[in-house]
Amino acid sequence: MTTTLHTTPVAVDDKGDASDKRVVRRRLGPGRRIRFAFWIGPVLALTVWSIGSATGVIKPAILSAPWDVVVAFEDQWVNHDLLGNILSSLQRSAIGLFLGVTTGAVLAVISGLSRIGESLIDGPIQIKRSVPTLAIIPLFIAWFGIGQEMKIITIALISLVPIYIHTHNGLRSIDGKYAELAETIGISHGEFIRHIVLPGALPGFLLGMRFAVTSSLLGLVVVEQYNAVAGIGHMITLAEQYGQTDVIVVGLVIYGIFGYCADSAVRLTARRVLAWRKTLEG
């Protein structure tokens, strides 16, 4: 009889706790996810742009109307090598981003898992963090010339820093209780890294990826101004010389689409890969 009276309230409390957690999450969270929510902001911005251009609030000399940009896009696609420029820019950005992400992640793991590695790596990275990469471009030009190599290295170095910072922070933020638990149950060092450390650092890595993607496009915009014979930046530079505002906007829109789609892909990947985490996002 005593046992029954003791277990019944415990079961009720467990259910109550679970119910309370769900209620708290509903109250604190952003609510039910909206389909195609990523595109609401851009569509709203396009609507405001169109209305402003149609009513004359936005002058063509300041910003070309959306329909003029569409005409310019068609002209660049048909009469100029817009596709080739897009592919050239994507190639530079992808190679530089890959090199930066790979190097940054490796350095973060070495620094995050080793005191010696941290003493050798973290200091130089923090110094580099305080020095804008774009300010080092003149040195890169002197070292590597103004060809493709300089452009890719610049993009890689810009992408490296956010990957390193956030991955390293993710590694250092792992609760020490997991290490104690791993030691208690006797799992090997390799298993501990594979099953505890790397999954624990994954949220930081994916957050760094979002910053790295944006940073790589920032670097791409700048380096393509230097002696590029192809690419969106090259197209924008020529349009600036001839005063073609609509073509400049075409290039800016393409850059924006690159960044938005890449960021959306990283966010979608994070949502699927980190489905085991219970956050306010759901």
Results as ranks from 00 to 15, higher is better:
residue 181 L to H: 11
residue 102 T to Y: 02
residue 263 D to K: 06
residue 251 G to R: 04
residue 127 I to Y: 04
residue 278 K to L: 06
residue 167 T to G: 12
residue 96 G to L: 01
residue 253 V to M: 07
residue 158 I to R: 10
residue 69 V to S: 04
residue 253 V to W: 04
residue 138 P to F: 07
residue 31 G to D: 06
residue 88 S to H: 10
residue 223 V to A: 05
residue 210 R to P: 08
residue 136 I to A: 13
residue 163 I to M: 14
residue 268 L to T: 10
residue 90 L to Q: 06
residue 241 Q to H: 05
residue 258 F to P: 00
residue 141 I to A: 11
residue 229 V to E: 08
residue 158 I to V: 15
residue 251 G to P: 05
residue 229 V to S: 10
residue 60 P to L: 00
residue 244 Q to S: 08
residue 207 L to G: 14
residue 234 H to V: 03
residue 150 M to Q: 12
residue 262 A to C: 07
residue 240 E to A: 07
residue 242 Y to W: 05
residue 150 M to H: 09
residue 10 V to F: 07
residue 268 L to G: 08
residue 86 I to N: 04
residue 117 G to N: 04
residue 105 A to W: 14
residue 45 A to T: 13
residue 79 N to S: 00
residue 92 R to H: 01
residue 19 S to A: 12
residue 121 I to P: 14
residue 112 G to A: 10
residue 81 D to T: 01
residue 146 I to F: 02
residue 123 G to Q: 10
residue 53 S to G: 00
residue 40 I to W: 00
residue 128 K to Q: 15
residue 134 L to T: 15
residue 42 P to W: 02
residue 278 K to C: 02
residue 129 R to Q: 10
residue 220 L to G: 12
residue 62 I to L: 09
residue 82 L to E: 06
residue 68 D to Q: 00
residue 258 F to N: 04
residue 165 I to Q: 09
residue 231 G to F: 03
residue 17 D to W: 08
residue 92 R to I: 02
residue 49 W to V: 04
residue 277 R to A: 07
residue 4 T to Y: 11
residue 189 H to Y: 13
residue 180 E to L: 11
residue 162 P to N: 11
residue 127 I to N: 09
residue 271 R to F: 00
residue 50 S to G: 06
residue 99 L to C: 06
residue 143 W to V: 08
residue 8 T to P: 05
residue 213 V to Y: 02
residue 150 M to A: 09
residue 94 A to R: 03
residue 128 K to E: 13
residue 230 A to C: 07
residue 226 Y to A: 13
residue 97 L to S: 13
residue 6 H to Y: 12
residue 52 G to W: 00
residue 156 A to W: 09
residue 162 P to Q: 09
residue 95 I to C: 01
residue 201 A to K: 12
residue 22 R to W: 08
residue 152 I to G: 14
residue 154 T to L: 05
residue 230 A to K: 14
residue 55 T to V: 07
residue 45 A to R: 08
residue 78 V to G: 01
residue 252 L to F: 07
residue 257 I to N: 02
residue 156 A to R: 13
residue 66 P to C: 04
residue 200 G to A: 09
residue 132 P to C: 10
residue 180 E to N: 14
residue 145 G to W: 04
residue 61 A to M: 02
residue 107 L to V: 00
residue 256 G to W: 00
residue 85 N to C: 02
residue 127 I to R: 06
residue 260 Y to A: 05
residue 221 V to M: 11
residue 238 L to Q: 09
residue 106 V to W: 03
residue 93 S to A: 15
residue 26 R to N: 14
residue 119 S to G: 12
residue 185 I to W: 08
residue 83 L to T: 09
residue 217 L to E: 06
residue 148 Q to D: 15
residue 80 H to K: 07
residue 218 L to S: 13
residue 226 Y to R: 10
residue 249 V to M: 09
